[in-house]
Design a protein around this nucleic acid. Structure first.
Lengths: 363, 363
DNA sequence: CGATTTCATGTAATCCATTACATTGCACTG
DNA sequence: CAGTGCAATGTAATGGATTACATGAAATCG
């Protein structure tokens, strides 16, 4: 480009004032709409945001123009100005985990009821990923984060962290959390096995980095204690929530020649794995070994036999999380709270009274 | 451990210019950073965006200040100015559907390789929801949309619609799509059943609103035709992709007294439902009836018997979709293309040669 | 040594909508 | 009829970054 004389671009933006052809696809701005509707930008903005401030005639005219030209306000500019996005990011460790889908539904429901949008970020439990999404909040692209892990990402921001914790919980009591009483729920599941006559109850635990897994294990221990069953450390193994982990755990027990007539698992997928492994070793579920899961994912109903499991109130967890988030966004002063919901044991086909001829440890 | 004296540290506001106390939590702007680092805002911005333009000494000083104060640039302001967000929204009909998780992985992988972020929007196949996410693109909050349904939302925007279509495809050939050759894949599945000796092959179709389901049905028909098996309309029923739909379909066939020794299903969940219903009616899979699914979701491997199914290259579909998206965002002039990948039949335990004594229709 | 690049940095325009404040006209009150 | 209040609209500041262009200094060239 040569640098001579005036490089001013003359703009005869005037044709549009009279002509105003639909021109599909062009990106518009308030300015253009204002010019065409022959009002100021302020009036256009008001017609769209707070119509009651604008006279009927003007409002209709503006809306007509907006519609005709397919104008969508630039949300970036708006959000920049208003310092609100009405967008919340829900962080889930793993979309492949069916447990979360129902929770998400609850979150979204409350969000939409309150004029918020939800976008999902999958973190694969990676701190880096979590932090990347958290940075979107720091960068003001979203108002808050609902995290379903036991970690809270750092967000350098004024006052309260716009973070709510669902399903899991964090120690930090400046952060609101919703979760179930895992100790009690796990205890109830084991109590139930005890009432069925089981005494050799194995436990497939989840990663101990997660507080809820620690709680579930504690629930298991307490229930054994209540039943005066001595704890047998060899009957507890830690898995990573996968189907394969459930299989491996059973393989391990069997290879060690452990005797057990029931297995309680920290989640449903490991329970599914456990059932598979048991069956493939010729053991019958529930006749030889009873299996109990945790979560009540959608597939739990469809395994054969169908899985007895602790049903988390997934929808309610989601609803409550988003409710807390909205409270917090509306008033950063509201105190954080830990909300504990209760969970119910759903008895299905994978549990049965202990067989009298206890033969379960024989392969 | 509270000490007796007041140990309040002096924190003079302007002291920051010299002292620069960390003051955690405050929100910063380039201006502040510039003032503290004693440079102009332009230099701060450059130090962060294009460090090579800034002298080493200045750069280090700025970075130090940025780090110390925990400054994150306001992404809204940046995106507003640059008209880019480097964010892509992936629209998935249903997070509960395990098929999509692997596709998402592929999308995210390519995104991160190219400095993009991905957020997920669940649409529940609702047009309204799809449109709401599309409006985020219109409002410039995201650069593009990858949709996994057969609908393309409307985005009033200059030039090419920043939309890529994955897994499904749309007729509109201004839109790029990646998907598999469903006719061939379905045909191969049915061919396989034919080679096993099956002739009475039922088909549980998916919603006919979706072109890929139409294709799968066509693949089924063509395969029957190749095998010179007359089509029997009574052996085709339409489901909605759910486990329950698979169960209902089988119930229907059985209640009508249809005779069949194999069932081909348009997706895995319906196949799982079909297996359940068959088994609960005392039929053995695969001895009495062979079942074939479509998609190869993670659970297909874990059903009993494990499911023979058409494995979609889920990861590749995702990678390719995001690759196309990036191409398109980098150059809106690149022509749209329809990329067709191939799918492989994975033979597992749910299929077997037809039993000679054909008794499959008896309950 | 003067001229020309090159490098580092600064100044100010710009992206686009929102909104505080200002203005205008009109109805209504005393 | 002056004064007050309200409704409708306009003007311009604002949010926070990016970046074209400008400037000054140092390096390079002839």
């Amino acid at each position: 480009m040569s640098a001579e004389g005036s490089k001013r671009k003359r703009q005869s933006a005037e044709g549009e004032l009279t002509n105003a052809a639909p021109q599909p696809g062009r990106v518009r701005t308030v300015k253009e709409i204002a010019a065409i509707a022959k009002v100021s930008v302020a009036t256009v903005s008001r017609a769209l945001q707070r119509p009651e401030l604008v006279s009927e005639a003007t409002r209709l005219r503006i809306h007509e123009v907006v519609k005709r030209l397919g104008y969508t306000p630039n949300a970036l500019a708006r959000n920049l100005r208003t310092a609100r996005t009405r967008l919340v990011i829900a962080l889930l460790p793993d979309i492949a985990n069916p447990f979360f889908s129902e929770v998400i539904r609850g979150i979204e429901q409350v969000a939409y009821e309150n004029g918020y949008s939800v976008l999902l970020g999958e973190t694969q439990s990676s701190l880096v990923r979590e932090q990347a999404y958290a940075d979107m909040v720091a960068g003001r692209q979203a108002d808050g984060i609902i995290t379903m892990s036991h970690r809270v990402p750092a967000i350098p921001i004024d006052g309260r962290l716009p973070v709510v914790n669902a399903c899991e919980y964090v120690k930090d009591n400046k952060i609101s959390s919703v979760y179930i009483d895992n100790v009690t729920a796990a205890g109830a599941a084991v109590d139930y096995l005890v009432t069925l006559g089981h005494r050799d109850i194995a436990f497939i635990a989840g990663p101990s980095s997660s507080p809820i897994c620690v709680d579930r294990e504690q629930g298991y221990r307490l229930a054994l204690h209540r039943a005066k069953i001595p704890a047998n450390p060899a009957l507890t193994v830690v898995g990573d929530f996968s189907i394969e982990a459930g299989e491996r755990a059973i393989e391990l027990f069997l290879s060690q020649g452990q005797s057990f007539s029931a297995v309680f698992c920290s989640n449903d997928e490991m329970a599914i794995g456990a059932m598979r492994a048991l069956i493939s070793h010729g053991l019958r579920v529930p006749e030889d070994v009873s299996v109990v899961g945790f979560d009540d994912i959608r597939f739990a109903r469809y395994t054969s036999p169908s899985l007895t499991t602790v049903a988390q109130p997934k929808h309610a967890l989601g609803r409550e999380a988003m409710t807390m988030m909205i409270e917090l966004l509306n008033d950063p002063e509201v105190p954080a709270r830990k909300r504990v919901l209760s969970a119910d044991l759903v008895v299905r086909g994978s549990t049965a009274p202990r067989a009298t001829g206890a033969r379960s440890h024989i392969v």
